[in-house]
Design a protein around this nucleic acid. Sequence first.
DNA 1: AACATTGTCAACCGCATTAGA
DNA 2: GTCTAATGCGGTTGACAATGT
Length: 253
Amino acid sequence: MVGMMGWGANSDQQGWRKGPWTPEEDKLLSEYVNLHGEGRWSSVSRCAGLNRTGKSCRLRWVNYLRPGLKRGHITPQEEGIIIELHALWGNKWSTIARYLPGRTNNEIKNYWRTHFKKKQKASAKQDSKKKIQRQRNQQQQNCTIANKLSPKAEEVIMQKSDEKIDNEYQDAVTFTNYHQSMDPIVDLAPVMTSSDISYAWTDTIPMDGLWGGLWNLDVDDKCKVAIQNEPTTANYSYSTDYAVNLYNGGFIF
DNA sequence: AACATTGTCAACCGCATTAGA
DNA sequence: GTCTAATGCGGTTGACAATGT
């Protein structure tokens, strides 16, 4: 599978092991965490006899060893939730992951990058091309009035035009990325109450948007969304967590 | 068949936040 | 109140696999 090359030496300057985990290391980590529980990752790495940083141990546990993790492809239903929540929150992967039991933020992040980034790119490029094509048509119309260009001149113009498409495309990507990075709730209303949130959501989300998707979740997913109490602090994470909260025992499934 | 490109995913890095001494 | 270590997060990288030319 994953080769052992590429992580430089297999240990860093402090002597910590790096790179892919071996089955033996997984076993040591699993046994230790199952016995002593999560947390205090630095001591986990020492006490479990692992020559790994606490960070590395935590990551391995959270993304791979933790019980209850789903394996296999993201379902269409999960994909729908990812799309809806990403539209709402942008790249808040860990927040999105809370609504997808058994999925890690790393998994969701990877899924988004591989499945939707390219679509975004494609559509941005297509939009730019359409726009440029309209401009070309306009230019051609103008050319019928002016003297006809030489083949060489036309070639140069077309080349410049293609460069412009690429530049515009890059601008479109930058623009899209910028808006993706915005958090709708934070940017629209940094201080919000639950009533503000419900207003803002119903005001900005289309009928087939978040509510449709989330309310339609299969009961078996044990997942419901509800507006809960008034937030006690004007803090983003509180606001969103209050606004969209899992009904069935918090976030634990 | 060979090479290039794209997709996938585990793991790392840097930074921000939180906890605790 | 301040400092330091631990933790968590998002972005990025690297390697292999799959697909395209």
